[in-house]
Design a protein around this nucleic acid. Structure first.
Lengths: 108, 108
DNA sequence: TGGCTATATGGCAATTATACCATGTATCCG
DNA sequence: CGGATACATGGTATAATTGCCATATAGCCA
């Protein structure tokens, strides 16, 4: 049971790890709106095409996105609708941190 | 504006990075129920005390937990209530992945 | 004070992540 | 066919993460 629990946390951590890069978050955010091909995502992110391709491989391997061949292009889309919850929580943490900072500044 | 956006994604990634370790997820999960001191968390996680202390420092630095001195102990608690959303989303991704696997297996 | 318990931190070795270049593969078009 | 476009992958250098040991710091208590 203890082992099962640990494996569960490792599985979750793998997902969190996939989210733990600004470029990948940017990609997921963009794919929330519409599906996009690699070249569009490459332009969006502003890194080398091979770099973006590897980021996409990470997301795909984690099950966060899927791809579809359309001619010579690969079109990616998000698999889950729950990312808004992720982002919302992140924002609330950031907001809370900001308030904490503000209090510190105000107390000077 | 583009810069601001990038910084926003970097800030989010920092949070995701803090979540991207099984031990830290375990800690956060435990702290959802009740506040706990370092020695309790150390026993829970099963790593060296210094290791757990560093994990807690990461979580604290990210604003995900806060600590309180109680005698010679440090008692930690979560700062945000939204982690359930995180975990729920993770679980739904895992479940979706499992279904995908099941389909693959069934098609053999 | 001296020793014990509870945490935090510095240091270091090993693992992992990241980015870009070069190159491979596949599709499309003339 | 041959060239161009769109992606993916191997190689590799650099940076970041992780874990434990040793050690520092601080509160507690006799």
């Amino acid at each position: 049971m203890k082992i099962k629990t640990r494996q569960r946390y490792e599985a979750r951590a793998k997902i969190a790890k996939a989210l733990a890069h600004p470029s990948r978050l940017m990609i997921l955010d963009a794919l929330q709106q519409q599906e996009l091909c690699v070249c569009e995502l490459t332009e969006l992110v502003g890194s080398d095409q091979s770099t973006v391709s590897k980021h996409l491989a990470v997301l795909k391997n984690t099950g966060l996105v899927e791809d579809r061949k359309e001619g010579s292009m690969s079109v990616y889309h998000n698999t889950c609708q729950c990312l808004d919850g992720f982002f919302g929580c992140m924002e609330s943490v950031l907001k809370a941190n900001f308030k904490t900072q503000a209090k510190l500044v105000a107390s000077l």
